Structures are given as structure tokens and as C-alpha cells.
Simulated assay, not measured.
Amino acid sequence: MRFIHCSDVHITDDYFALPLRRLGWRRWMALVELTVGGRAKRYARARHVLSSIAREVEHHAADHFILSGDLTAYALDSEFRGAREALGSLAEDPRRCTVIPGNHDVFTPGSHQKGRFASHFGQLLHSDLPEYRGEGAFPFVRLLGTEAAVVGLLSARVPFTPGLSYGVIGDAQLGALSALLKDPRLDGRAVLVVVHHAPLTRQGHADHWHHGLRDAEALLRLLPGPRHAVLHGHIHQRYHHPATEDRPHIFGAGSSTEEGREGYWLIEVSQGRVLGGEMHTPRG
């Protein structure tokens, strides 16, 4: 089986065309990053690039498309709509597509309280094994063919203030995942766990306190060996840590639509094991 994995596509609206009162103070602060920091320019073509990556599913005859969070710049409805439109028919079918939220998709308390991600992508929160949900819709499970299962986790939390972007999975989801992994319906399947925050950096270390996944060690302990993989985003670098006896494969998808760094993983699974992946650049 083949899986396309991308992340951190950051669909961005024209913030200066919107009433400031609609943005709120958190997005006012983010305007500095959009302008002086150059984020708006780097993601000006994000919708087009995401659409191109979605079309790569047909080119590679991939079985499933995975987007590990940060669909939006700052969690506006218009940005979520743009991401859904760019994904096209993939966004309608949980058999073909898995999407989870990132920290930018719950950037404000309002976006979280209104369930803005679920209002646009709730159709992809379906689980084949709903009895293992531990926190809301998470973990959700896709049983794909006879060789693989994809598990979606939630690590994105509303930050107290911009600049804090750490992630937490939490005991409820970790406990549910632990029980799920013992279910005989997963026997013989490779298990691809999708989470937004990175359990390890490119250098193989834990990320910084204010940016990293707080319960990364607990997650990795549940997933030893090449049967397992963790697919993540958040760190805008694309890398692969091969599995060891005690640790899963770890795929960081980088920022798939950032100008000059566009790309995604094509991950191969066979006979219940994750074989590895190749980095690709979208052709469109």
C-alpha cells in the first residue's frame, strides 16, 4: 500500500481585507509574522500547491492521503474552506483521506469552542473502531485493506498566548491507543499514527518545552519496531527516522506548501510493515 503524507499547508486569507474586530488580538499579533516575517508571501500559492499534492494520489496510485495538521494560517472559516476546496473529493471520503488539526487550526479559543475544524472536516473524523475514542473523536481509526491501519490523534491545544505552541496528547487518548493496539482486528497490520506535534526533532532530540510534544516518550513507548510509524508536522523540516527495535518510524512532513520547500512523503507499507518512504515535489 502507498500513503501520501503532507503537513503544515497554512492556507492564508487576505487579513488586511477583513475587519480588524473579526480577527481578535491573537491574530493582530500574528499580522507581524504575516508581514514582517514574510509568512503571507511564502504561502501565497498554498491552495494551488495543496491541490497539486492532492492530485499526486492518482499519479502514484496511492491508497490514502494524510495531512497532519495546520491546514490554516490562523483558523479562519475562509481558510478552512480554502483547504477543503484544494483537497477536492479527497476531503469527502475517510477511506481515502485522513486529516487532523494542528495548533494553527485551534489558534483562538473561539475557533476551538465553535468546533471550526470539525465543521469543515468532521466527515473525516469517522472511526472504524469508535469504542476506542478517548477524547472527543480521538483516537479515530481507519482499517485499510488487510495491511494497514491509520490512527488519528489530537495534540493541538489552544495556546495561552501566541508563541506557546506545544502539544499534549493526554492520558485519555494514550490509554485508548494502548488498548486499541491490543485489538485482534489490528493483527498483521502496519499502524500509522498521525499526530501534529513532533515526537523527535530532525536531530533525534526532544523539541523545546514551548514547542514540542509533552508526552512524546509515552507515545513512542507504545509503538516499537517497523510495524509502526508516527507521521507528524509542526516542525517545518522534512525527515525520516527509521524504526529501531524500540521505536517506530518517524516521518516529519515539513511544510508542504511553503515556497521553495514544497513536497511530501510517499510511504510504502507491505505485509504489515512500514518499509520506508521517498520525498517528492508536486508536479503542478
Rank of each mutant, 00 (worst) to 15 (best):
D183N: 09
A216C: 09
A218C: 02
R84P: 08
G134K: 03
H59T: 15
I4W: 15
L125I: 11
Q113Y: 10
L50P: 06
Q173F: 09
L18A: 04
H241Y: 12
T281C: 05
P224L: 02
H60S: 08
S111V: 03
A149I: 04
R55A: 12
H236T: 09
H5M: 10
R22A: 14
H64T: 04
P130Y: 13
D8V: 08
T35G: 10
P139S: 04
R238V: 09
V158N: 00
E147V: 09
G204T: 05
Q123I: 15
S52I: 12
L90Y: 07
S7N: 14
F251Y: 11
L180S: 03
W28M: 11
W209V: 07
A216V: 02
F16T: 01
H211C: 11
L219C: 01
F16R: 02
S68D: 05
G69M: 15
S52V: 14
T281I: 12
L222Q: 11
T146K: 08
G175K: 04
P224E: 02
F3H: 08
C97R: 08
L186G: 04
H5S: 02
V99R: 07
L266Q: 01
R202V: 08
G145L: 07
A75C: 05
G82C: 02
A198L: 04
H10S: 01
L222E: 11
I169V: 05
H211R: 14
E278H: 09
G115R: 10
F160W: 15
F140N: 04
D207K: 09
H120C: 02
G252A: 10
T244V: 07
R95H: 13
P19T: 13
D70I: 09
L143P: 00
L71Q: 14
T281V: 15
A149P: 01
L67D: 04
M1V: 13
D215T: 06
G225N: 11
T161G: 12
R261Y: 15
V195R: 02
G212W: 04
E278G: 10
R47V: 01
A61D: 11
A40F: 04
F65V: 01
V36Q: 14
P224H: 10
G102M: 07
L222V: 03
L223I: 03
F160N: 06
L71R: 13
G24H: 10
H104A: 08
R261Q: 11
V150K: 06
F160V: 06
R142H: 13
S89D: 03
R227V: 03
T35K: 12
R26K: 15
E58G: 03
H197F: 05
I250W: 10
R39C: 02
Y74S: 01
F117A: 09
F140Y: 06
K114Q: 11
H228I: 03
